[in-house]
């Protein structure tokens, strides 16, 4: 935290706002991981951390380093792009595996569906 003293106040405020927003959203997502009852509900919870949570923390980092170096520092965008592209792949594979397991083991764990087969 030695070189943050030269940061103008507006940049510090913006960075703090987006950092806290992102961290809070991530925390709420993890609370959902605990509070929601079935696996299919819980699969929604971590996407809060990967969409808005990661997005605003990355934005905070971009603002901080861009103002600090007084040039656009955009490499954090790669993290946002990477997370957006990989999360659907893992979650889709995981939910398909869960669906497959539920169909084979005990189908009463399946949540309400319009036409159960």
């Amino acid at each position: 935290m030695m070189n943050a003293a030269g940061l103008p106040l507006w940049a510090a405020l913006l960075t703090s706002f987006f950092l806290l927003l992102g961290a809070t959203v991530t925390l709420i997502g993890c609370i959902g991981l605990i509070r929601l009852r079935t696996f299919y509900e819980r699969i929604h919870a971590p996407t809060m951390g990967t969409s808005l949570g990661a997005g605003s923390i990355v934005l905070a980092s971009i603002i901080f380093f861009s103002v600090l170096d007084s040039r656009p520092v955009l490499h954090e965008v790669l993290i946002a792009v990477f997370v957006t592209v990989t999360t659907p792949v893992t979650l889709m594979l995981l939910s398909r595996a869960a669906l497959y397991r539920d169909h084979t083991d005990d189908s009463r764990k399946l949540p309400r569906s319009r036409d159960q087969d």
């Binding site: 003293a5 510090a12 806290l20 992102g22």
Partner: peptide
């Protein structure tokens, strides 16, 4: 701004 950032980063 250093103090503000210190605390917000810590809380985050």
């Amino acid at each position: 701004s250093a103090v503000l950032l210190f605390w917000s980063v810590l809380i985050a």
